[in-house]
């Protein structure tokens, strides 16, 4: 039935979906911090997208649609064995983290130059170790350069949530990078 040449579905898919491969690939790469995993995740996402292509509503945000497929694939693959609470109020977490942040994080403040010595791999690892929700917004905003509006649409959440997760995510990342810098013996201001 589809032996010769490309079907219209294939042509449409290739011209509308495939141009967003870089967005997905970079997200996958930073989420997993592993290029083999990123390769698999991107392929799986596009194959699913192709399979459900008729479910995609033309004219809506295709990047958001593809992103959600990838996010689901990611969750299915990497959901942790330990059961996590699934109903979590992020404002509460925000308050909670602000209250209980590690005392040690405050006691050594670093010169920004200490970060200069860190390897790109250290930075990538620190991102990959962030809790998933914080990791996602940091990758989408700071690495992929998406706007708050687009991230909110991707995640189907309010703008305020994007902003507060970014704030918290960057701050957690800073704490981790400081720790790496200190572990490596780089000058960290007392």
């Amino acid at each position: 039935m589809k032996a010769i040449g490309k079907t219209s579905k294939q042509r449409e898919f290739e011209s509308e979906a495939l141009p967003h491969a870089d967005l997905l690939y970079n997200y996958a790469l930073r989420m997993t911090n592993n290029s083999a995993d990123a390769d698999d995740l991107v392929q799986e996402t596009f194959l699913k997208a192709f399979r459900f292509w008729d479910k995609y509503e033309k004219g809506t945000n295709i990047r958001a649609w593809l992103f959600r497929i990838m996010k689901n694939s990611y969750i299915n693959r990497y959901r942790r064995e330990a059961k996590e609470p699934d109903t979590v109020d992020y404002d509460e977490i925000q308050n909670f983290y602000n209250t209980i942040r590690d005392e040690s994080a405050d006691s050594h403040d670093a010169q920004d130059s200490a970060f200069g010595n860190l390897l790109d791999d250290d930075i990538a690892t620190a991102i990959a170790d962030l809790p998933e929700d914080f990791r996602t917004v940091v990758i989408l905003c700071d690495i992929e350069g998406l706007t708050y509006e687009e991230i909110a649409e991707f995640l189907d959440c309010p703008l305020g949530t994007v902003r507060s997760r970014l704030h918290r995510g960057r701050s957690l990342l800073r704490t981790r990078l400081l720790k790496y810098a200190k572990d490596r013996g780089y000058a960290v201001e007392g």
């Binding site: 294939q10 898919f13 290739e14 495939l18 491969a21 870089d22 997905l24 690939y25 970079n26 790469l29 930073r30 290029s35 390769d39 991107v42 392929q43 596009f46 194959l47 192709f50 970060f115 790109d120 930075i123 990538a124 991102i127 940091v138 700071d142 690495i143 992929e144 350069g145 990078l177």
Partner: peptide
């Protein structure tokens, strides 16, 4: 720091080719 150190990378060609072939 993130913008400077973790630049956007291009999807490897093998991956895009594989997707086209597979679909």
């Amino acid at each position: 720091l993130l913008q400077r150190r973790l630049r956007i990378v291009q999807t490897p060609h093998e991956i895009s080719h594989a997707i086209v072939a597979e679909t």
